[in-house]
Amino acid sequence: MKVFGLVAVFVVGLLLLSATQDFPSWGNPRSAASDGEVSSFYIEKTEAVTKVPNMVTAVLADFRGYDTMFETVVIFIAGIGIIAVLRNFEGSDSSIDYDNDDNGAGLLARFTCSLILPFIQIFALYVVAHGHHSPGGGFQGGVMLGASYILLALAFGLSKAKRIFSERRTMIFAVVGIFIYVGWGVLCLLLGGEFLNYSVLDSILPGDAMMARSYSMLVVEIGVAFTVTAIMFSMYSNLSTRGRLSKGL
């Protein structure tokens, strides 16, 4: 098996390496990927059309809005799937009992985490809110916010973190995030545009159609951040306790 694997890997690797003969060299601005019509449009027209300087966020939340919407749904389904796979819905095991003896880490770790946690959370919210002007966005900020709750669970014990961010609340957050995203698209439909065509929202938002797209990106990113935060914490708490949620790491 090992020999067969090694041979297969070498053959595939040599094929891939021989294919790189035709690829453009490192950093070539005239390569097909970088010089194509689509990429050039995104670079040259993003700020003129949407007033958003961060092209990555603009492409993610506006030009390719469908992609990101279903991406959020993928995360949500993964979170639901983990719960469905791990939790035993039959018998007495199904009731969630929070373990009150679970005190988490030692005194020093708890004290340090209580100092750091507010700053982590504020920075995460900044990354979400400023994501269309500087590096950042809903996924990145959401992961940071989720990680801050994971840190809380590691330092103070899962039971305390679950009292703040309970299983029910996690799922409500995840659903609310998707509803914000989809609802914003439906709002565009109601105002006479296409689904996720933010420029028709200028009648209810301050500024012109371009500013409406900029604001809409912020709203959509907030929706993504809700879902990602909730599912990250849900994934951690379920995986670290085998779905019992009773005693964490």
Binding site: A33, I43, M55, V59, L60, D67, V74, I82, F139
Partner: peptide, 25 residues
């Protein structure tokens, strides 16, 4: 080029989802 960055942001998210689900299974 911003387009590969956007596509890979998507791929990272799919990677997290598949890895989490695979660990659960």
């Amino acid at each position: 080029n911003p387009l590969p960055h956007v596509l890979m942001l998507t791929a990272i998210v799919v990677g997290v989802s598949t890895l989490g689900l695979a660990l659960a299974i």
